[in-house]
C-alpha cells in the first residue's frame, strides 16, 4: 500500500479546471454575462409577457394539428398547462421551459455535427464512443462543479451542465442514423457523382432524419431531467420549487412542482415524437 502513494487525480483535475477557467476567462465572462442576459430576456421579457390564455391556446392548436387532429394530446396540453398556472407556477414553468429549450438547442447544434463526424470515420467513432459512455454514466451532479467554476451560478451553468448531460443521445443517434443508410443507396449516390457534401445532405441526413429525431427527443428528455439538479446551482424554475419543498420538508409543494415537470415532460415528448415523420413511408 505504501509503495504507491495516492495518485493526485483530484488535484490534477482541479488544477486543469483552474487553468481552463483562467485561460478562457474572457470567453466564459462573455457567455456568463451576455448569454445569461439573453436567456433572462427570453424567459422574462418574452415568454412571461405572452398572456397565459394565449400561450395555452397556441399550444393547444399546435397539438391538435401535429397529432393528426386527435383530441387526446390537445386536451392534455390545455388542461395540464391550465393546472400549472392554477397552481401559480407559471413563471417557474416558463423558466424551466427556457432552460430546456436552450440546453436542447445547444445540444443539437453540437451533437449533430459530432454525430456526422463520427459516422464518417471509424477512428472518430472509436474515440468518441467511450467518451459518450463516460458522459452519460458520470452522475449528473458532477457536472455542476465545473459549470459553477466556469460560469458561477444561475441559468447559464444550469444550461451548461444540462448540455453536457443531454448531448450524447443526439451524437449517438446521428451516427447510427447515417450508418444505417444502406450500402446500396450510398453506391447509387456515388455512382451519380455526388460530392461528399451532396451525399450527406441529399441522401444520408434525409434518410437518417427519423433516427436523429429520436435522439433529439431523448436529448430533450435528458435536459428536462436536469431541471431539478440544475436548480441546486441557482437555475430558476420548477426545480427550484422542488428544492424549496425538500429544504422545508414540504411534501405538498414539492409534489405539485414535480407534477408540473411531469406535465411539461409529457407535452414535450409527444410534441417531438409527433413532429418526427419521414417522407416516403
Amino acid at each position: 500500500m505504501e509503495l504507491i502513494p495516492k495518485i493526485p487525480v483530484a488535484e490534477w483535475v482541479s488544477s486543469f479546471t483552474d487553468w481552463v477557467t483562467d485561460t478562457f476567462e474572457p470567453l466564459f465572462d462573455f457567455i456568463k454575462n451576455d448569454f445569461g442576459d439573453f436567456i433572462e430576456m427570453f424567459a422574462e421579457d418574452w415568454l412571461m409577457n405572452i398572456p397565459i390564455w394565449l400561450f395555452i391556446v397556441v399550444v393547444g392548436v399546435i397539438a391538435f394539428f401535429i397529432s393528426g387532429k386527435k383530441l387526446g394530446l390537445t386536451a392534455f396540453s390545455v388542461v395540464g398547462l391550465w393546472f400549472i398556472s392554477n397552481q401559480e407556477l407559471w413563471e417557474e414553468l416558463m423558466n424551466t421551459f427556457t432552460l430546456v429549450i436552450f440546453a436542447s438547442l445547444i445540444s443539437v447544434v453540437i451533437g449533430v455535427p459530432f454525430g456526422i463526424w463520427m459516422a464518417k470515420s471509424r477512428t472518430v467513432e472509436k474515440i468518441l464512443t467511450p467518451i459518450l459512455d463516460f458522459m452519460q454514466t458520470m452522475p449528473a451532479f458532477v457536472y455542476l462543479i465545473p459549470a459553477v467554476a466556469f460560469f458561477s451560478i444561475g441559468m447559464v451553468p444550469g444550461v451548461a451542465a444540462s448540455v453536457i448531460f443531454a448531448t450524447p443521445p443526439t451524437v449517438r443517434f446521428t451516427n447510427l442514423g447515417i450508418r444505417q443508410v444502406s450500402h446500396e443507396l450510398i453506391e447509387a449516390s456515388d455512382s451519380f457523382g455526388t460530392t461528399n457534401t451532396q451525399k450527406l445532405f441529399k441522401v444520408q441526413l434525409p434518410m437518417a432524419k427519423k433516427t436523429i429525431m429520436a435522439g433529439i427527443n431523448q436529448t430533450v428528455m435528458l435536459a428536462l431531467s436536469m431541471v431539478v439538479i440544475a436548480s441546486m446551482i441557482g437555475a430558476k424554475g420548477l426545480g427550484q420549487t422542488v428544492i424549496t419543498g425538500l429544504q422545508r420538508a414540504d411534501v405538498g409543494t414539492g409534489f405539485v412542482a414535480g407534477l408540473g415537470i411531469v406535465i411539461l415532460a409529457i407535452i414535450i415528448d409527444r410534441f417531438t415524437q409527433n413532429l418526427n415523420t419521414q417522407r416516403g413511408e
Binding site: 447509387a188 457523382g193 441522401v203 434525409p206 432524419k209
Partner: peptide
C-alpha cells in the same frame, strides 16, 4: 472521376436502390 460518373456512366442496381424519401 465525379465528372466521368456524372456525364458518361449511369448505373442501374439489382435491388433498384431508389431513394425512399424522394418522389
Amino acid at each position: 472521376l465525379r465528372e466521368v460518373r456524372r456525364e458518361k456512366l449511369s448505373m442501374v442496381f439489382q435491388r433498384f436502390a431508389l431513394f425512399p424519401h424522394r418522389t
